[in-house]
């Protein structure tokens, strides 16, 4: 594990992080930050965390860079050079070194990197690995634990996305009084990009649906699929102007879908409560779904729950992009 590719990547990641903070121009530091996230995905794939790498690539690297660019597009790119006031920098440096030292202090008795007998890998997660398939018939253990054993966490995760999109929409929504000032770039109606994106978008969305549907068998699931679907909408918004996209999915409908996604997830968990079982206990669905045993009911309800997540995340990413890029007026975009 040590001399493998991870060590090299870790050093590279460190360099990228430092560079991204030091670059003067904001846009390029965001691009370097995007590269930093992509390298992070590679490290995590190296360590066997495929689902996390997928999410980081889609959500962490892809979408957040787009958000950064959306904000920077209408504001400044340059940093005003400020006199280097040493006192604040030194004070914070000491503070961080102190906390760093404290963390190092705790290192001495942590298990070394990647040994399977460490307590963290033998206590609870051993049970998951051994019995997840038997109890839920879902080969992808990550999705099994994500959507069933700790479904409550995931439900709140979807709420987090919903809160983000609602909060951003509420904060930025202007009543349209003062129009967005003329940005330098002309609305690009570049034919080639439009044709290429019109060709690619259906495939992207198909792939997104595939990822959502195949969350059980291959890496992926609600979040990653939702982000891909959201990304396809963002691609259309970038290629064409915002008016065009709003016909596809208007802002009101987007918010409504975001709520419905969460309601699907929470509702699916609520039904067992009405049937007398505890919240999010999918085995209660066996009674409702025709011809499925307790275990199969779990795996089907996981799919349903993933769909709910996908809807919310799709509308979430799309909504955040639309608000950020048009500063709440939803009239002109990137």
């Amino acid at each position: 594990m040590l001399l493998g590719i991870e060590t090299l990547l870790l050093i590279l990641v460190l360099i990228l992080a430092v560079v991204s903070l030091w670059i003067r121009d904001l846009m390029s530091s965001v691009v370097v930050f995007g590269a930093y996230s992509f390298l992070m995905c590679l490290i995590w794939t190296g360590m066997g965390a495929v689902d996390v790498a997928f999410t980081e690539a889609a959500v962490g690297a892809g979408v957040s860079t787009v958000f950064f660019v959306a904000v920077l597009f209408n504001t400044t790119r340059r940093i005003q050079f400020n006199p280097l006031d040493l006192s604040a920098k030194i004070f914070s440096a000491i503070l961080c070194i102190g906390t760093g030292y404290l963390l190092m202090l705790g290192l001495s008795d942590l298990p070394s990197w990647g040994d399977p007998q460490a307590l963290v890998n033998t206590n609870v997660s051993k049970y998951y690995i051994e019995s997840a398939y038997k109890q839920t018939k879902v080969p992808n253990l990550v999705t099994a634990v994500l959507a069933d054993y700790r479904a409550f966490d995931t439900m709140f995760e979807t709420c987090v996305v919903f809160i983000a999109v609602l909060g951003i929409f509420m904060l930025l929504k202007k009543d349209g009084r003062e129009p967005l000032k003329e940005t330098s770039a002309k609305a690009n109606d570049n034919l080639i990009i439009r044709v290429a994106s019109r060709f690619m978008v259906p495939f992207i969305q198909l792939f997104g649906l595939y990822v959502v549907a195949h969350g059980h068998y291959s890496p992926g699931g609600g979040f990653q699929g939702g982000v891909i679907l959201g990304a396809s909408l963002i691609l259309v918004a970038m290629a064409f102007n915002i008016e065009f996209v709003k016909q596809l999915l208007s802002i009101k409908r987007m918010l409504l879908l975001a709520v419905i996604g969460v309601i699907i997830f929470a509702g699916w968990g609520l039904v067992p409560v009405f049937l007398g079982q505890s919240f999010l206990d999918y085995s209660a669905w066996a009674a409702l779904l025709p011809g499925t045993g307790e275990i199969m009911a779990r795996s089907h309800s996981m799919l349903a729950v993933e769909i709910g997540v996908a809807i919310t995340v799709m509308c979430g990413m799309y909504g955040i992009y639309m608000s950020l890029v048009s500063d709440g007026r939803f009239d002109k975009g990137l």
């Binding site: 770039a185 690009n188 570049n190 990009i193 290429a196 690619m200 495939f203």
Partner: peptide
């Protein structure tokens, strides 16, 4: 996908640079 996507992206970059 790369065969279609990557050249378009380069084209977009160059066109933005040109504009």
């Amino acid at each position: 996908f790369i065969f279609i996507g990557s050249p378009t992206a380069t084209h977009a970059l160059i066109e933005a640079g040109y504009n």
